[in-house]
């Protein structure tokens, strides 16, 4: 560990963001229900936000830009969750299931 404390180093935040992204992609591959995949997608969103905030703190000339951008990411994530969940509810009404293996019909 170098002389700077651990919470003031860029690489720690970047490794944490990479861990979140890797866990999210693993969940996206492994999950077999739509809601599980949506949760993994939220983890990937969080990884992107953490990376943006880390670079905003450590190497941006104007630290306001990253905060505004991450705020917009949060708003878009909320909108995306609302739309995705309504689609999931509609799918569940039609198929009585949200397991991805059973949604294999193109025209219902």
């Amino acid at each position: 560990m170098s002389s700077t404390p651990i919470f003031d180093r860029l690489d720690v935040y970047l490794v944490a963001g990479a861990f979140l992204l890797a866990v999210g992609i693993y969940g996206l591959i492994r999950r077999r229900t739509l809601i599980g995949m949506l949760i993994s997608g939220e983890l990937i969103f969080s990884a992107a936000s953490l990376n943006l905030m880390a670079f905003n703190r450590f190497s941006a000339p104007d630290p306001v830009v990253g905060q505004v951008f991450v705020l917009f990411i949060m708003g878009l994530a909320a909108a995306e969750v609302a739309i995705a969940l309504s689609i999931i509810i509609a799918v569940y009404r039609n198929y009585r299931s949200v397991k991805t293996q059973e949604l294999s019909e193109l025209k219902g």
Binding site: L14, V15, G17, L21, A22, I25, S59, P61
Partner: peptide, 20 residues
């Protein structure tokens, strides 16, 4: 992905900090 991005994060030539 974790290995590649972690290596990139720890070894990348990131610019120095500017505190505003």
């Amino acid at each position: 992905i974790f290995g590649g991005m972690g290596w990139l994060g720890t070894h990348g030539p990131w610019p120095a900090s500017t505190v505003g």
